[in-house]
Amino acid sequence: MKMKREEQQTLSEEIKENSGINFNACLHCQSCANGCPFLEGMDFPPNAVFRLIQLGMDEEALNCSTIWICVGCNTCSSACPMAIDIPSVMDGLRQKALKTGIKIPEPDILSFHEEVLNTVKKYGRTHKLEIMMRYKLRRMDLLSDMGMGLKMLKKRKLDLMPSKIQDIKAIDKIFKDK
């Protein structure tokens, strides 16, 4: 997957073109890393992911867990002295990783996102119970967290039936070819 620099756009150029974000403005001050609530689940702090791309280590950047663990809470981008929209860069890298077809280091997170979008495509809105059931089935793991699921059902925190929109054709238009 090594890119030939002369012929192809570099990854940082591609991200800049797609999102308008120039993360080469990064000073590596590590404000993003120091404030990130989920740093311990990441293999690289956010600024190090930028560094990997700056060094042309695209494969390492697209393969890292950081881009999947990031939930986009904006703690980092609020702290960034250069006002870099870090979560948007993560969005771009995640989608680039999916396009290149490399192995995703956090398959559970990807499965979860796919199941969420599945219900949005079907009903126009998310349906938590179906997302959780299908997500658990995909992982062949119905038992972990079962107690929590039952407690949530008992407390009526999971609606049995989905809330649906009327104009499902509009949603088909949004999800066209998917």
Binding site: D91, R94, Q95, H113, R125, I165, I174
Partner: peptide
């Protein structure tokens, strides 16, 4: 009337166009 999911979290995570 007839609002849909805002696209938060999952759509913007994995599908720019849908988001």
């Amino acid at each position: 009337d007839d609002w849909n999911c805002c696209g938060s979290s999952s759509a913007h995570s994995i599908d720019h166009e849908v988001a």
